[in-house]
Design a protein around this nucleic acid. Structure first.
Length: 862
RNA sequence: GCGAAAGUGGCGGAAUUGGCAGACGCACCAGACUUAGGAUCUGGCGGGUAAAACCGUGGGGGUUCGAGUCCCCCCUUUCGCACCA
């Protein structure tokens, strides 16, 4: 036992004495420091932006307050917290905030289920989860907490909406929208799962409905959102690719095909979108989406055709709902009508096909079977003409100058045109540009760019969201709520039902309002905003959440932005991360911020899974953080989420693994309690004297560990190996104790102090409670966040001897130990002199001897 | 179908640039201790063998003195996108 501790422990209350016993008691230690830290609300507060210290903004994605943290949260926040604490120790001014993405449907569902008002339910959940976070010991600056469902925050959503409206970026349009019958609300396209179901109700099919909706013009920024992905080298390539695909930029041309014969109400031409106008001489049919408006004109008086088209429509919808549109069996039906190819006047048949989508391009394509996979498959099936109009252009073509016949379908752009009238002989790339220009000059087409990205529909017919600050006046039409009248408060005590439409429409006091323009009778917009609006700019608010006259202060934001490190689940790779990039660009155009991108570095952590599947109540494989904390303590729980595997990969949860960490923390605890002697004068002595081999080994391992962990923080973030190195260090400390017991000379106290202090400092980002407790045991009083991260000395980290493996023809035959500074020649000589090596190469000719410094010698023999 | 990531002991995972495969932890086995514990400490632990040899990183080829790592083909799993014209 460490007798030097007795005087300290005697003066303390009973529950703190346990922390002085030989047994690691995480509950007592964590309770003690929780209480102390609670008395200092400024502990994790960043310094004002006027400080001279370098800033570091580390941010984890804010949770939806569902009621309880799950392991995914714990993992996310343990990564961020380790980083924040490390950066603090590196001397940075760290901003590490937290908040609540607290509008949304679950609160309404809960309100219906429990007859609790959404606000009460939400705030109750927030309080519970905040308690859990504090219990975990996360270093959040709660003075800058953001709660999106409170008017202090959402009034700025409304303010932004008005600004977007002024800039023409918010508009209303009637359009087909995704309607989830269960939510009774509209979903963004992005919120519909690939199987056609609602993202929140995975068993509920989304329907289509026509409604007047508010949209934000994200497509105005499509090009910049795409281009600037290049400026985000510190984002995972995976995420950038996903966003690139999501934006789906496609260069091509629109071409009008005139109808041959009588035109109907939908017009006298069919406009197709194509990326390969160079192949237009090979178009042997047009294919329309079943829902294309002109289809009705073409088949109006043919009931048989009409029913066939309806079948196609059903097939397409079924495939979409089933989530495998890609696997649909291609079907089509000829309309019996024709259109004219504007380039050569040729009559081409018009078909309707189930694989053509109305919502991409123009909903009509020219079918070029020879040069498109899908068109080829379709043409084969229905025996349509296949006409080759481009040939491969590459070396090795026939010697007489005529290129080889291509294997169909031939789709490459490295090609030359044939069978294409005046365009013959042009390379495809030239032809695309020239033919587009020709079409434009002759008034039947033009070059264009299409995007897969669509404008962002933000209207929700729900109660628990930000009211859209608009008024409908019979005389004046759409009138924005004047800025001075913000916020438009969300009324409380509203009856929530699952019946469609906005619950706000049933509150006359809310709906009925005088028109701010003419003073006449007006009616408020009763839709609320998509919650992705809340999360599109919340991280700016953290820089000063107390402002009441503006959403943010540009100078303060200028100091903190961009966010140095953002950490969250990859499931937000598209929606949240593209909306918030869009929002930032609009804010920049408004002159509010200077940065064009919100996030410098993005890290997407893997999911927490158990027994091979994502944790879910259905599977019964959920591990509750509370249970873990109660059993093993917060330190062990959070540390295990880092130890279980690399943070960017899925973590396979193993209850037994937590025990391993718990055992490690116990070993650290016992070592320090046994060996901490802060009351001895030599404890603070400067390094002096020779060290015994065992002491020197311990010291060497200490410096190697510091080096390794420091590098891991700067680079790969493989905290699992960082922690394993800490474990190895502790194993080395135990081996040292053993060596002393066996009679080796003990290390001087200054070294024991050095080793233990640095061990505790390295533990601080991962296990802050235990680290702080042991810091005290070592006689230190400073807060660990302000204690400098230890530095390693390369000279002390260096091994004095090295072991070389000796291979003969790649197989290990022996090992030799040589001084670390031995030259290659010396190593080679020693290797060849080794008895086992001699035996292995006896009677053979040495072809080559290769020395790899610090690792091995390979002797090639024949 | 396209794209990305991955596949290593009984399990989670190490091996950063091609250089001793299996660090660290769990489980298991043995020993020590006895305040008999869900405690602690020490040792062992890929297969194979008496010991060696030898065999081992999803499968098959290749490059190299040397391959878990690089190249080619194939299989499996996960994620993302999906007839995008």
């Amino acid at each position: 036992m460490a007798d030097s501790q007795t005087s300290v422990s005697n003066s303390k209350p009973q529950h703190e004495i346990t922390a002085r016993s030989d047994r690691y008691d995480p509950q007592a230690i964590e309770r003690k420091w929780s209480e102390r830290w609670a008395q200092n609300p400024d502990l994790y507060k960043s310094e004002p932006s006027t400080t001279s210290r370098k800033k570091y903004y580390v941010l984890e994605m804010l949770p939806y307050p569902s009621g309880a943290l799950h392991m995914g949260h714990v993992r996310n926040y343990s990564i961020g917290d380790a980083l924040a604490r490390y950066m603090w120790m590196q001397g940075y001014n760290v901003l590490h905030p937290m908040g609540w993405d607290s509008f949304g449907l679950p609160a309404e569902n809960a309100a219906i289920a429990n007859r609790t008002p959404p606000k009460q339910w939400t705030l109750g959940n927030i309080a519970a989860m905040k308690r859990q976070m504090k219990r975990m010991g996360f270093s959040y600056d709660w003075s800058t907490e953001v709660t999106t469902c409170l008017p202090e925050y959402y009034r700025w959503n409304q303010w932004f909406f008005l600004k977007f409206y002024e800039r023409g970026l918010a508009y209303r349009k009637k359009s087909k929208v995704n309607w989830c019958p269960k939510c009774a609300t509209v979903l963004a396209n992005e919120q519909v799962l690939s199987n056609g179901c609602c993202w929140r109700h995975e068993d509920t099919l989304v329907e289509q409905r026509e409604l007047e909706q508010w949209f934000l013009r994200i497509t105005d920024y499509a090009d910049e959102l795409l281009r600037d992905l290049e400026k985000l080298p510190e984002w995972p390539e995976k995420v950038r690719t996903m966003q690139r695909n999501w934006i789906g930029r496609s260069e091509g041309a629109l071409v009008d095909f005139k109808l041959d014969g009588i035109a109907g109400p939908a017009g006298d031409k069919i406009t197709v979108f194509t990326t390969r106008i160079d192949t237009i001489y090979g178009a042997t049919s047009l294919q329309l989406a079943p829902e294309h408006p002109i289809v009705t004109d073409l088949i109006a008086n043919d009931p048989e055709l009409l029913s066939k088209v309806e079948d196609l429509m059903t097939e397409q919808r079924r495939a979409k709902e089933a989530g495998d549109v890609g696997a649909i069996e291609k079907h089509g039906v000829a309309t019996g009508r024709y259109a004219l190819n504007p380039f050569n006047g040729e009559r081409v048949p018009i078909w309707v096909a189930n694989y053509v989508l109305l919502d991409y391009g123009t909903g009509a394509i020219m079918s070029v079977p020879a040069h498109d996979e899908r068109d080829y498959e379709f043409a084969k099936k229905y025996d349509l003409d296949i006409r080759v109009v481009i040939l491969p252009r590459r070396e090795g073509d026939a010697a007489d100058g005529s290129p080889n016949e291509p294997v169909l379908p031939f789709v490459e752009t490295n090609s030359l045109l044939i069978n294409s009238g005046d365009w013959n002989g042009l390379p495809s790339e030239d032809a695309i540009a020239k033919m587009s220009r020709y079409a434009e000059e002759h008034g039947f087409g033009k070059a264009t760019v299409t995007y897969r990205l669509k404008d962002w529909g933000i209207s929700r017919q729900r109660y628990w969201g930000t009211p859209i600050p608009m008024i409908y006046c019979e005389g004046c039409g759409i009138v924005p709520v004047p800025e001075k009248d913000l916020p438009v408060l969300l009324p409380e005590n509203v009856e929530i039902t699952l019946a469609g439409g906005s619950p706000l429409a049933m509150v006359p006091e809310f709906v009925n309002v005088t028109c701010p323009k003419c003073g006449g009778q007006g009616r408020r917009e009763t839709d609320t905003m998509d919650t992705f609006v809340d999360s599109s700019w919340y991280f700016y608010r953290y820089t000063d959440a107390t402002l009441s006259d503006k959403p943010l202060d540009s100078d303060t934001v200028g100091y903190w932005f961009p966010i140095d490190q953002y950490i969250g689940g990859v499931e937000h790779a598209i929606l949240h991360l593209i909306y918030s990039r869009f929002w930032t660009k609009v804010m920049r155009d408004m002159g509010l911020v200077k940065n064009a991108e919100p996030v410098e570095r993005l890290f997407t952590q893997g999911m927490v899974i158990k027994d091979g599947a994502k944790m879910s109540k259905n599977l019964g494989n959920v591990v509750s953080p509370d249970d873990m904390v109660e059993h093993h303590g917060a330190d062990a729980t959070r540390m295990y989420t880092l130890f279980g595997g690399p943070p960017d990969q899925d973590l396979d949860w193993q209850d037994a693994g937590v025990k391993g960490i718990s055992g490690f923390l116990s070993r650290v605890y016992r070592f320090v309690v046994r060996n901490g002697r802060p009351d001895c004068p030599e404890w603070r002595a400067v390094p002096n004297g020779e060290l015994s081999p065992a002491a020197r080994k311990m010291q060497r391992r200490l410096h190697q560990t510091i080096q390794r962990i420091t590098e891991d923080f700067a680079g790969r973030w493989h905290f699992n190996t960082s922690i394993s190195f800490l474990m190895s260090l502790v194993n080395e400390l135990y081996a040292y104790e053993d060596a002393v017991q066996r009679g080796e000379q003990a290390a001087p106290l200054w070294l024991m102090a050095d080793v233990q202090r640095k061990l505790v400092l390295m533990l601080a980002p991962f296990a802050p409670y235990l680290a702080r407790e042991l810091w005290e045991t070592l006689g230190e009083t400073s807060d660990l966040l302000r204690a400098p991260w230890p530095k390693y000395d390369p000279a002390l980290a260096k091994e004095e001897e090295m072991e070389y493996a000796i291979q003969v023809n790649g197989k290990i035959r022996s090992r030799i130990v040589v001084p670390a500074d031995a030259s290659e020649d010396q190593v080679r000589e020693l290797a060849l002199a080794d008895d086992k090596v001699k035996a292995a190469i006896e009677g053979k000719e040495i072809v080559k001897v290769l020395v790899v410094r610090g690792r091995l010698v390979n002797i090639a023999v024949k």
